[in-house]
């Protein structure tokens, strides 16, 4: 296997010393042909600069922790093959999140938003164990399956200009997860979630830029779920006012 020299321009930030982030270039990092950007970072950390900080865990696009801006695009660094990039690669922490240190971001806002949308089954009629399981057909499963594939990597938040400009916006992943439960045949919590999702900082800050779906490594298509939620909350808005007697 042949070797290739790559220059890594990494945005560094040391909260104890720096007043603002700065780029540091690691020159001629010896990389194997089949490496990803994460491998190159690991090489630097192991051999050149042990102070370089970044998050990673699984190295196989499952855990969702190694998201970074790679040449300006939100990407999982374990999925960013060096053969797809030039000889100089620019690596930055995910946009729209505060920088904790180097490539590590502060994700508290995202975690808090995830819990706000009640991302769990709220059964229509709670059943006791004796009454048996909640049955579902393959068709009903397929309806929402795509939206279960989110790995919480936050690339969509980093791609979404509305989240960057309006930090209160609940954002693509959290709203998609709400949609995943809303359209689950076993769930009856749509109205309860709408108290959060149908507000101005819910789906209505979304203007369908569509960038979230383009960068999503799991092909969850958050933009799609947000449009469907807008249609659903529009129907709900009119229904509640034109037919106040109808329940749902």
């Amino acid at each position: 296997m042949s070797e290739r020299k790559i220059n890594l321009e990494v945005l560094r930030y040391d909260p104890d010393k720096d007043s603002e982030p700065r780029f540091q270039t690691y020159k001629a990092v010896p990389c194997q042909d089949d490496w990803v950007v994460l491998d190159a970072l690991n090489y630097v950390k192991d051999n050149t600069d042990t102070t370089l900080s970044y998050r990673w865990s699984c190295h196989m696009a499952v855990c969702g922790s190694c998201g970074m801006m790679i040449d300006g695009e939100p990407t999982l660094s374990c999925k960013a093959f060096l053969k797809d990039y030039g000889d100089t690669i620019r690596v930055e922490p995910l946009y729209h999140f505060p920088i904790e240190r180097d490539l590590v971001t502060v994700i508290d806002d995202f975690v808090e938003k995830l819990t706000k949308v009640k991302p769990f089954l709220i059964p229509k009629q709670p059943k006791s164990i004796e009454e048996g399981e909640y049955l579902q057909t393959p068709k009903q499963l397929k309806k929402f399956k795509q939206y279960t594939l989110c790995i919480n990597c936050m690339l969509c938040y980093s791609a979404c200009p509305q989240y960057g400009l309006i930090p209160d916006f609940l954002g693509p992943a959290a709203l998609s997860l709400a949609h995943r439960y809303n359209i689950d045949s076993r769930d009856g919590g749509c109205q309860e979630r709408m108290k959060v999702t149908a507000t101005n900082i819910g789906v209505w800050e979304c203007s369908f830029v569509g960038a979230c779906s383009e960068v999503c490594p799991g092909h969850v298509d958050p933009a799609s779920s947000l449009q469907q939620m807008k249609i659903a909350s529009t129907v709900d808005w009119y229904k509640k006012r034109l037919m106040p007697w109808s329940k749902s």
């Binding site: 108290k195 149908a198 507000t199 101005n200 900082i201 209505w204 807008k230 909350s233 709900d236 808005w237």
Partner: peptide, 19 residues
């Protein structure tokens, strides 16, 4: 943002926008 926790009234116009 004021009123951000209330149900949005954007659906009124959004229906017309989409149609």
């Amino acid at each position: 943002m004021s009123g951000s926790s209330k149900i949005s009234n954007k659906p009124i116009i959004w229906g017309l926008f989409a149609g």
